[in-house]
Amino acid sequence: MAARPSPLRAWLLCGTLDIAYAALWSIAAGGTVGGMLRGVAKGPFGDGAAGWGPGGAVAGLATHYAIMGAMVAAFVGFAPRWSARTGWPWWLTGTLYGLLLYLIMNAAVLPLRFGAPFPPADPVKGLVALFPHIAFVGLPLAWLYLRGDKQ
């Protein structure tokens, strides 16, 4: 089996894929990348971060990568052992990990911080939020770390 990549590379890959998706979705929805990033900053820094201008966008980007660091670290720490115990293929482990991340963010973190409803009233918004957790975090991590273990 080939050597596994560094967690730093996995963190940068998944974080960049996920934030690029969020940026494109924000633009497609009529918003701005800066506004989306300031919205992320509101999580830990409060509603005032929305008025911080470029500094709020930088704080949002830092927040995004900090959260992604925790997501990658949890996967790197536990998924290889979990995968070895279950015998699941990498793509199933990645899909389920992405679903778990979606549930943590959308059923716990966002409702507790912002009062966001779960499940979302609009199923399209739910899918828009679910997709990147699986496609840009769970599957890439599983592919990077588990694909050589079993096919």
Results as ranks from 00 to 15, higher is better:
V124Q: 05
L24Q: 02
F118D: 01
G98Y: 05
A29R: 13
A50R: 15
G94S: 08
A70Q: 00
A79G: 07
M36G: 07
L127T: 02
G126I: 00
L17F: 14
W91E: 02
R38D: 03
L92V: 15
H133T: 04
V58P: 04
A116M: 12
L92N: 01
A108L: 15
V58T: 15
A3L: 10
P140S: 00
V76M: 05
I67G: 13
L96I: 10
P120E: 11
V109D: 01
A107I: 03
I134F: 06
N106F: 14
L101M: 13
A3K: 00
L144P: 12
F114C: 08
R113K: 07
Q151K: 08
A57P: 02
D47W: 01
G55V: 09
Y102W: 14
S6T: 13
G77N: 05
V33E: 07
A121W: 00
G69V: 05
W82Y: 14
L61H: 10
R4D: 01
A116P: 00
Y145D: 02
T32K: 05
G15R: 12
I104D: 00
P140R: 00
A28E: 09
P89Q: 02
M68Y: 06
V58D: 09
L103Y: 10
G34D: 06
P120W: 00
R113F: 12
R9T: 15
F114W: 11
A20H: 12
A23K: 03
A107E: 08
A135G: 03
P44V: 10
L139S: 08
W143R: 14
R147D: 06
A74T: 11
A129G: 09
V124K: 03
G39W: 09
I19C: 06
M1F: 12
A62K: 08
Y21P: 09
F78L: 14
A62F: 14
